[in-house]
């Protein structure tokens, strides 16, 4: 179902992970993603996975939910795997049938890439699951602030992101509803070839866009009538403050990252 997608769906909690400063969480996530691209052994991936599991357990996140978040990338994963299996050349030939050939290097890179994608998604979903969209954008805004000097509208960008994140579940729900309504009129979203399926999406997408625009309009009005103004002069209700635990955790993460990247 559409509503299974985890992005932007925060699970409130009070674990140490939940209470971390969002800026630190974002930085750690960026760091870990970078490290992920340097890992080139399965032991490295295994250690990374171990780290992910430990964080999941500390944050008391339902593992099922995190796994369900992987579903949307299922096809990407399969595709990556197959492309590498059949196209990457090198090493011994493992299996051959007519023009199809799987070689050793293909198997390795295939599984490497897949592990990389899955771990990447898992790690970033930890961030979005344990951080409310509000905190997340606050964090991003702080981190982008230095760039404001070069004319980057950090505040506006952050606001746009908050809104986008906030409306993903709403739009998915809306899509679900419209889909049902069109099905009630005999629409068929599930069968047919690619062209037929693409065509079948029109009755879903048109109303969805219209409703998105209508929502945007209404939201803009509502914000304006509550005197929203962009710009740097906005003050905030909750100032972000680094705590000592945040610094320790960051150092810990950095240490782990360096350690893992040795494998």
């Amino acid at each position: 179902m559409l509503t299974d997608i985890t992005i932007g769906q925060h699970i409130p909690g009070s674990s140490i992970i939940h209470r971390m400063d969002p800026r630190v969480k974002i930085l750690i996530t960026l760091l870990m993603i970078t490290i992920l691209f340097f890992i080139d052994t399965f032991i490295g991936y295994f250690l990374f996975l171990l780290l992910v599991v430990i964080i999941l357990l500390t944050a008391k996140l339902p593992i099922k939910r995190v796994l369900r978040g992987l579903k949307p990338v299922f096809f990407l994963v399969i595709l990556t795997l197959f492309l590498h299996l059949f196209l990457t050349r090198g090493g011994e030939v493992i299996w051959q049938w007519r023009f199809l050939r799987i070689e050793e290097a293909g198997v390795f890179t295939g599984f490497f890439m897949v592990s990389r994608i899955l771990l990447l998604i898992m790690f970033t979903s930890i961030l979005t699951l344990t951080t409310s969209p509000l905190e997340l954008t606050d964090g991003i805004e702080y981190l982008l602030k230095p760039l404001a000097r070069f004319g980057l509208p950090a505040g506006e960008l952050a606001m746009m992101m908050t809104i986008a994140l906030r409306f993903i579940p709403t739009l998915l729900e809306e899509a679900d509803k419209i889909m049902k309504a069109q099905k009630a009129r005999g629409a068929d979203f599930e069968s047919g070839n690619i062209i037929q399926r693409a065509k079948a999406l029109v009755p879903l997408l048109v109303p969805l866009f219209i409703s998105a625009f209508r929502r945007a309009d209404e939201l803009a009005l509502a914000m304006e009538s509550r005197c929203y103004r962009g710009g740097t002069s906005r003050t905030r209700l909750h100032e972000l403050k680094l705590k000592s635990t945040d610094i320790y955790l960051f150092l810990l993460a950095a240490g782990l990252a360096v350690a893992i990247s040795f494998f």
Binding site: K177, I178, K180, A181, Q182, K183, A184, R185, G186, D188, V202, P203, V206, P207, I210, S211
Partner: peptide, 20 residues
């Protein structure tokens, strides 16, 4: 099911949001 949906018509709440 398509046959059932033809024989049992369902008008959702705010059906005008589904015009396309």
């Amino acid at each position: 099911l398509k046959e059932i949906r033809r024989r049992v018509g369902l008008v959702f709440q705010y059906p005008e949001h589904q015009l396309f």
